[in-house]
Design a protein around this nucleic acid. Structure first.
Length: 182
DNA sequence: AGCAAGATTAGC
DNA sequence: CTAATCTTGCTA
């Protein structure tokens, strides 16, 4: 199969979560489903690290849902939030070390028409993948993609040599506690 | 068994 | 600002 860029190696994810989060910016998330390919450059992420982070899903300890967080790095952790939206995370760090990077926004590259169809036609291209719930809808990512290996052929992240612009840190969005870590 | 809250979004 | 809607964790 021809790839526009090179797939990130397992090693990439097996590092401190903040480093992974920073390096993820500008990388390209690709999802292949039934032959349709959608992809977008990652432009906004959030890091959730460990049981000491009150906003992290691993905070209350290990549960059935957050179990992928404890697994090996380089896997997808997709979960249903508010019963409506699927949020996609990239699991980082070693086995038994729960940490992940939440992907909040993409810059659409391939499959824009497909994304628009999935979102309904009222959406502009720029708004297609803005917001964690919206981007999963546009990419067609659901609970079925939970625990997928990012080194597989279906869902993965590649480096197309894009240079991220200025990187900005800010408070994490949409949570009520644990805002002290940008 | 029942209840409240959550990494959200769309609509008034 | 509020509803929609599901999983989880706590309390009785």
């Amino acid at each position: 199969m021809r790839r526009a860029g090179k797939q990130l190696p397992r090693k990439f994810y097996d590092r401190p979560t903040l480093d992974v989060a920073r390096d993820l910016l500008g990388k390209v998330l690709v999802h292949r489903r039934r032959g349709a390919v959608t992809s977008g450059a990652i432009v906004e992420v959030e890091a959730y690290i460990g049981e000491s982070d009150p906003a992290c899903h691993a905070a209350p300890g290990r549960t059935r849902r957050n179990e992928p967080l404890y697994g090996p790095p380089g896997h997808a952790y997709v979960y249903l939030n508010y019963g409506i939206h699927c949020l996609v995370n990239v699991v980082t760090e070693a086995h038994d070390s729960p940490a992940a990077v939440l992907i909040r926004a993409l810059d659409p590259l391939n499959g824009v028409a497909t994304m628009k169809r999935r979102r309904g036609r009222t959406v502009k291209t720029e708004g297609l993948c803005r917001g964690p719930g919206n981007l999963t809808m546009a990419m067609g990512i659901t609970l079925a993609e939970n625990r997928l290996d990012l080194l597989g052929d279906r869902l993965f992240i590649e480096d197309r040599g894009l240079k991220p612009g200025r990187i900005v840190w800010g408070p994490r969005i949409g949570i009520s506690s644990g805002r002290e870590h940008p």
